[in-house]
Design a protein around this nucleic acid. Sequence first.
DNA 1: TATGAATGAGGATTCATTCAT
DNA 2: AATGAATGAATCCTCATTCAT
Lengths: 196, 196, 196, 196
Amino acid sequence: MTRNKLRAAAMRLFGEKGYDGTALSEIAKEVGVKTPAIYAFYENKEDLFMTVFREAMESYNTYIQELSEEQNMTSARDSLYRVLSRQYEFYQKCPEESVFVLRYMVFPPAFLKETIEEAFLQSDELLTKAIEELIVHGMETEAIRDQPVQPLVDSFLNVMDGLSMQYFYYTSREIYERKLNNAFETYWNGVRSNYN
Amino acid sequence: MTRNKLRAAAMRLFGEKGYDGTALSEIAKEVGVKTPAIYAFYENKEDLFMTVFREAMESYNTYIQELSEEQNMTSARDSLYRVLSRQYEFYQKCPEESVFVLRYMVFPPAFLKETIEEAFLQSDELLTKAIEELIVHGMETEAIRDQPVQPLVDSFLNVMDGLSMQYFYYTSREIYERKLNNAFETYWNGVRSNYN
Amino acid sequence: MTRNKLRAAAMRLFGEKGYDGTALSEIAKEVGVKTPAIYAFYENKEDLFMTVFREAMESYNTYIQELSEEQNMTSARDSLYRVLSRQYEFYQKCPEESVFVLRYMVFPPAFLKETIEEAFLQSDELLTKAIEELIVHGMETEAIRDQPVQPLVDSFLNVMDGLSMQYFYYTSREIYERKLNNAFETYWNGVRSNYN
Amino acid sequence: MTRNKLRAAAMRLFGEKGYDGTALSEIAKEVGVKTPAIYAFYENKEDLFMTVFREAMESYNTYIQELSEEQNMTSARDSLYRVLSRQYEFYQKCPEESVFVLRYMVFPPAFLKETIEEAFLQSDELLTKAIEELIVHGMETEAIRDQPVQPLVDSFLNVMDGLSMQYFYYTSREIYERKLNNAFETYWNGVRSNYN
DNA sequence: TATGAATGAGGATTCATTCAT
DNA sequence: AATGAATGAATCCTCATTCAT
């Protein structure tokens, strides 16, 4: 119980204030426990952080994995849009995990640099593959103009990354949703075939 | 002299390791001076940080401002592309400033949250206006299909933000350049008129 | 069972790393038990230490006591030599007890200073008496030159103390045995009568 | 100034209470300074300890070195006796250094084991050589019976080691001096020639 | 302008100990 | 007899900051 509450508090605080900006005492206090209690569950600050990091990554990867699984029946347009809105959903449902992942993906603490690079590459590959399938499927059904696939994947990922950043500095829901839709629409215009 | 060296070192270190992760002693050491020397030039850590922050923002804003100024003669396509490549140039020429701006734009330390939000909004407005002009110009010359402007601006900014993030986690130059070109091409495809 | 294993582990670790340098958790771990289990058998760290201390002293004293008991039949030379070799035997058979006794005899933790001084004096007296008897016996049989007894006792104890220290910093068996024999030989030369 | 006072306080406290039993705060308090001030002069606790250790060793070695230098004119008996009384002098003049050296020679903290063994061997060799010269000199002048040298060196060192230990647990000056004289007398009886 | 000395505040971590189970 | 959870006290150490020089 305490173990999990600690994990949750750590996720939130590390995400919000950074590794160095978060004192173990704050995490403990948030859980209603004294600092040394943390050491009953985690070896040290790094260990707590790593545990949280792994959990956040897993949570994020799970969400990505599920993309490939539900793609099937829907149109390419819908399923690509679905990717963006699922990402948005994830940010809303798991704001702590999201901030955490984003923060440490881009600005890992020194001791995590390598681990994170690996985790990132792995995650990136998964996502790339999922998007690729959707796009290929779109070409097969002629929703997307026939053309080299990689550029379309690249630019879709670019849209996603852009939306990631923007989620965190446009706090207004409406503005974000507008941006999401507009970004997607332009992307779709750029890739779709002229038949529909 | 020392004052400037301190600013530069602070820029680099605050950017790389974060506000809390950077000790004044590290900054001093990088400059070859003892910690208390810092206090001859800056009131305290926050002051040093703020100075650096203002400088980075100014550097970034200058680069944006210049966008509007040189837009004129070239085609809309070229000038939009120019925006992306200038951003890229900025990242390459001023990597310290870039990391710094990106980091504190997205993850400001608590005491800076408000200041940064203002600075961000201001900067964002500048950029938005500049892009808007380019796009309107593009429509006037019929390079861009006639349509509401805001969505095109939104999605261009989205492309830019995406490229920002990607610059920091795709370390390979080639990959990044490919991604930049692909993102732009898709964007352009999505907005251009069918005449060219 | 556990009680004894704890005692043994404590003996070894307190002897090797000192009172302050040994954490209860180490002792527990060596026994394969969690720290609080110690409190089922011992009141606290001091109590455990004292128990161990008493045991080590008893073990040491027993060995000394036995000296007097077997002295009888043999020649003075042999029985004095026997004292040194029995001390050596003790070090080899009970290395933990030996280190422990030596360490806390010379460097008792503050809270034990008085207790240990008493224990030491008592032990010293026992030993002194035993040696004295051997020497007197040696004079009676004219193996040892007739002369005041105390100086001979003093210097024999000095030889013993010297060998104690040396045992702990000359790790090589051979060197130690050589030193033992040489020390004894010189001593014997210094005290023996000229008849043999 | 503070640096030296710290060294002195550390010498005393480390010697008296052991490495783990001595808190930096105690050392600081003895000097009339707050704990962090220590870090202006020493890297950390180990560094302070090592500095003190080196100083104590040097002090001890110097004393040994001087033995060889003044040996010349005096009789072998006098110069050997001189060694013991100089050792005694050293204990009295530099009680802190003495306790320190003895304690860590016999019971080094784990992180010092190797360093100390080296230091010890080196010191031991110096001393051995010095004693050897005195004894050889004694044989040349026929004060000492002609015989193999090593045993006489061994047993003299044994006497010295014995007196080391005894100095620390016989607190009475008179008793110690008696023991010193008696030990020496017996030793000398054991080695001297019969001519004098 | 720069430094050495010093400090208060705070941070991670260890440890002996307690208590409910 | 043994453990998991928790804590108070203390330890080493870092850091921003001050001040006299």
